[in-house]
Computed example of a mutant assay.
Amino acid sequence: MKYYVGIDLGGTNIAVGVVDENYQIISRSKMKTNAIRPAEPICDDMAAAVHMALKNASLTLKDVYWVGVGTPGTVDHTTGVIGYANNLDFHNVPIKKMMEERLGVKVYVENDANAAAYGEAVAGAAKGVQNMLAITLGTGVGGGIILDGKIYSGTHGAGGELGHMGIVMGGRHCTCGRNGCIEAYASATGLINLTKEAMQEHKDSKMWQFAESLEQVSGRTAFDAMREGDAYGEAVVDTYVEYLAYGLVNYINIFAPELIVIGGGISKEGEPFLKRIREKISAQIYGDSTVTRLACAQLGNDAGIIGAAFLGNLADNL
């Protein structure tokens, strides 16, 4: 049996998994990232978490083919340098070199959204698919692009920022500093903002039954009200899906992927949610909308660990 280690480095947690050749996570470890702090102690903690996960699996680094790291920010996977990660305050951090010094094995590094997309491609909803996009609807809109079975990340790893495609000129302000990005509209944050605005305008909406105050509004509020027959909840969901589909059509027109995998908490709405998106896409698409399928992500938070663990398969020398 072959074993690999995947590290999902986040702004809040460091999650590590030992993954076997069948894409099964056989052991885990987790610790707080405690950002923002220097890269050296974070790498020390990542190394400690790797040893912990291996110990839990009764393995050592001698049993591991390589270690993969999925990290926020722009990553040059050829050099293993994180150019910039705002939630870690990393600037030109040679994380590959730092982790290889600590572990004594080959280390591969990739952007976390790309690693998660690769995880879905090798073991999840997109298994066997050569051309796919993975979209995560969370606090922001994360994205990963797989073309011809490989991660596309652009020059110096700065590409694939699917959440920062503009869909409304002069629209809502985005965290990237630009206005009108799809992230400002189609993220869970965007949905919450749409919901709050509708609730303030319609005090008789059933959305108030599911969120007694604006501070309690979640990505589920409008969906829950819609299921109770609330016309205002229905309108919020329809508007939200319209924005999301508008962006997805742009991706389809550019990449013509076989599959788009949608993850994040909102994806738990499942097939009824996908059906609404498909209807909006069909009304806007250039050409044949049946070229691209939609599916909900299958691996959840494990996608980043599994994708990172198999980054070595993408290396030119393998």
Rank of each mutant, 00 (worst) to 15 (best):
N111R: 10
R102I: 05
E110S: 07
V81H: 12
G149C: 09
A123M: 13
A117L: 12
A116P: 05
G166R: 12
E100D: 04
E161L: 03
G104V: 06
T79P: 09
I151G: 01
I135S: 02
G149P: 12
Y118F: 15
G154P: 13
M132D: 07
A158L: 10
L103N: 04
Y84S: 15
Y152T: 01
D89E: 15
E161C: 06
A117D: 02
G80R: 04
C176D: 05
D89G: 02
V141P: 13
V105W: 07
G171V: 05
G70M: 07
G180E: 08
C176K: 09
K150L: 06
A126T: 06
N179I: 00
R178Y: 13
M132Y: 03
A85V: 02
A123G: 09
S153W: 02
K127D: 03
I146C: 11
V129E: 09
E110G: 01
T139N: 08
I95S: 02
N131V: 01
H164N: 03
R178T: 14
G177W: 11
E100K: 02
G119M: 08
C181M: 10
V168D: 10
A115S: 12
Y152N: 05
V122G: 09
A117G: 14
M165Q: 14
L133H: 13
I146P: 12
Y118V: 04
T78L: 12
K150Q: 15
C174G: 09
E101A: 15
G70F: 10
G170S: 13
A184V: 04
G149D: 11
N87K: 04
G171F: 10
L103P: 07
T78A: 08
S153Y: 13
V168L: 12
G180Y: 09
T71F: 08
I95T: 03
Y185V: 04
H77V: 00
M98P: 01
V107S: 08
N114D: 06
V75N: 01
G177Q: 06
E100F: 13
G83E: 13
A117P: 08
Y152A: 14
G157R: 02
Q130S: 15
G180D: 04
G83W: 01
V69M: 15
V75H: 03
A113S: 10
A186W: 12
E101C: 03
L147Y: 10
K96I: 01
S153R: 15
N92Q: 14
G104A: 12
E100M: 13
L162M: 13
R178P: 00
G190Y: 09
Y152Q: 08
I151R: 00
Y152H: 15
A158I: 09
G104M: 13
K96G: 00
E161W: 11
N86P: 12
K96R: 15
A186K: 03
G104Q: 09
I167R: 01
T74C: 08
G190D: 05
G180S: 09
Y118L: 14
